[in-house]
Lab assay of single mutants.
Amino acid sequence: ITIHVNGVTYHFDNPEEAEKFAQKMAKTYQLKMEIHNGEFHME
């Protein structure tokens, strides 16, 4: 699972971890999250 946050790329093997991380980042930084081709993009 690949997550892009403001141009920084994070890779996770565990989908649950990826989702937790994505939600935490979105909440902490008030980010808008989109999913493209199974990759999370946040800005």
Rank of each mutant, 00 (worst) to 15 (best):
residue 1 I to D: 01
residue 1 I to S: 04
residue 1 I to A: 04
residue 1 I to N: 02
residue 2 T to M: 07
residue 2 T to I: 12
residue 3 I to M: 03
residue 3 I to G: 02
residue 4 H to P: 01
residue 5 V to S: 01
residue 5 V to F: 11
residue 6 N to V: 13
residue 6 N to D: 10
residue 6 N to C: 15
residue 6 N to F: 15
residue 7 G to A: 07
residue 7 G to K: 07
residue 7 G to P: 00
residue 8 V to E: 11
residue 9 T to H: 08
residue 9 T to K: 14
residue 10 Y to F: 11
residue 10 Y to W: 08
residue 10 Y to Q: 01
residue 10 Y to H: 07
residue 11 H to W: 11
residue 11 H to F: 10
residue 12 F to R: 00
residue 13 D to P: 10
residue 13 D to H: 11
residue 13 D to G: 09
residue 14 N to G: 05
residue 14 N to C: 14
residue 15 P to F: 13
residue 15 P to V: 12
residue 16 E to N: 08
residue 17 E to Q: 07
residue 17 E to K: 11
residue 18 A to M: 04
residue 18 A to R: 02
residue 18 A to H: 01
residue 19 E to R: 12
residue 19 E to D: 08
residue 19 E to W: 15
residue 20 K to A: 11
residue 20 K to Y: 08
residue 20 K to E: 11
residue 20 K to H: 09
residue 21 F to G: 00
residue 21 F to V: 01
residue 21 F to W: 10
residue 22 A to G: 01
residue 22 A to K: 04
residue 22 A to L: 06
residue 22 A to E: 02
residue 22 A to C: 15
residue 23 Q to H: 07
residue 23 Q to P: 00
residue 23 Q to N: 09
residue 23 Q to K: 08
residue 24 K to V: 12
residue 24 K to F: 15
residue 25 M to R: 00
residue 25 M to E: 02
residue 26 A to I: 13
residue 26 A to C: 15
residue 27 K to Q: 14
residue 27 K to N: 11
residue 28 T to Y: 15
residue 28 T to P: 02
residue 28 T to Q: 14
residue 29 Y to P: 10
residue 30 Q to K: 08
residue 30 Q to C: 15
residue 30 Q to P: 14
residue 30 Q to W: 05
residue 32 K to G: 09
residue 32 K to T: 14
residue 32 K to D: 12
residue 32 K to W: 14
residue 32 K to E: 13
residue 32 K to Y: 14
residue 33 M to I: 14
residue 33 M to H: 01
residue 33 M to N: 02
residue 34 E to V: 15
residue 34 E to N: 07
residue 34 E to G: 03
residue 34 E to I: 14
residue 34 E to Y: 14
residue 34 E to C: 15
residue 35 I to P: 02
residue 36 H to G: 03
residue 36 H to F: 11
residue 36 H to C: 12
residue 36 H to N: 06
residue 36 H to S: 05
residue 36 H to K: 12
residue 37 N to G: 09
residue 37 N to L: 07
residue 37 N to M: 06
residue 37 N to H: 08
residue 37 N to I: 09
residue 38 G to S: 03
residue 38 G to C: 14
residue 38 G to Q: 02
residue 39 E to D: 07
residue 39 E to R: 02
residue 40 F to P: 03
residue 40 F to H: 04
residue 41 H to V: 09
residue 41 H to D: 03
residue 42 M to H: 03
residue 43 E to P: 05
residue 43 E to I: 15
residue 43 E to A: 11
